[in-house]
């Protein structure tokens, strides 16, 4: 066995050393970037929890805001209001969004579907404050602020989210499933109602739940449509109802530390809601994906 004339080194030297060092620096930068984002999340969450902690009593959920400021009081009316508004918004956005998605995947020609998808994406990019002004011009001018106006504004925000999420799961349905059903002589609408919607229900719910989480925290669409301060618990949707986002917004602009604490508490409630819904959505999505990919 011949021996190599010169000893070959596979160690990095000179220029390669520098290149490796640059590589290590850039990898460090990437790790740092991820750490910064995680730190930001951690700091925000910890700030909210720590500052909301002293205000976490049962009274937070049972009492209405103190009319004259100061410590005590609760946000029960805002919780009820937010729940009502988001529920109404979901009621408006869900059917339209799901139907529009069905049209895109089941009936429309590809070009038409692509056009509608573009409209949905652009609608999703409309600044939410503009959505608020739109609904203000449409439903509030000449009338009053009301919960249904606020709900309509939130529905505009939710619509593209629901429609796009539904479209994505409908596209996951294998074409063989559609063909199998049609080949049995089952009509198109029975195929959609009897086969496609049941198999994608989990995915549709996921999209809806994510949209609800997003809507629950939206403030801008409500400023011009449902922001008049009314402390009492009410379910009259023809009037403006107190709600959590607007409550946090107005309290944060006040100089009163007691109100700040209430704002932190409301923020914690809101974030807890969003966390729970997101985790639920994740679970639903995993389940529906399993169902679609493993028969």
């Amino acid at each position: 066995m011949a021996v190599a004339a010169e000893r070959i080194s596979l160690r990095a030297t000179g220029r390669s050393r520098r290149r490796l060092r640059l590589n290590r620096v850039m990898e460090g930068v990437a790790v740092l970037a991820a750490s910064v984002a995680l730190a930001a999340l951690g700091i925000v969450v910890v700030s909210v929890v720590v500052r909301a902690w002293p205000a976490l009593h049962v009274s937070l959920f049972t009492q209405t805001p103190n009319l004259f400021g100061g410590p005590g009081g609760g946000i029960s009316s805002a919780i009820v209001g937010s729940a009502l508004i988001v529920a109404m918004a979901t009621g408006m956005a869900l059917p339209v969004g799901v139907l529009a998605a069905i049209f895109m995947t089941e009936f429309a020609r590809p070009r038409v579907a692509a056009a509608i998808q573009l409209f949905l994406d652009v609608l999703n990019g409309v600044p939410t404050i503009v959505t608020g002004i739109f609904v203000y011009g449409l439903l509030v001018i000449g009338h009053l602020q009301s919960a249904y106006a606020g709900a309509f504004a939130l529905a505009v925000v939710m619509l593209p989210l629901v429609a796009r999420a539904t479209q994505e799961v409908l596209l996951l349905v294998p074409n063989t499933l559609r063909e199998a059903s049609l080949a049995l002589g089952v009509s198109r609408w029975r195929t959609v109602v009897g086969v496609i919607i049941p198999t994608t229900l989990g995915g549709i719910l996921t999209g809806t739940v994510i949209a609800m989480a997003r809507a629950a925290g939206e403030t801008a669409p409500l400023l011009f449509t449902c922001s008049i301060f009314a402390p009492a618990v009410s379910t009259d949707v023809t009037h403006a109802l107190p709600n959590i986002p607007v409550l946090i917004f107005t309290y944060s602009e006040q100089p009163d530390p007691a109100l700040h604490q209430q704002a932190w508490a409301a923020a914690l409630v809101l974030m807890a809601f969003i966390l729970i819904t997101s985790l639920t959505a994740r679970g639903l999505l995993a389940r529906s994906r399993r169902k679609l990919t493993h028969g």
Binding site: V48, G217, T219
Partner: peptide, 21 residues
């Protein structure tokens, strides 16, 4: 997922944190 959670923080909460912290 954690970075996705960052996107889920409502803007009003971020604003509250921004102004007070």
């Amino acid at each position: 997922s954690l970075i996705e959670m960052l996107a889920a923080i409502p803007s009003v909460v971020l604003g509250l944190w921004g102004i007070l912290v």
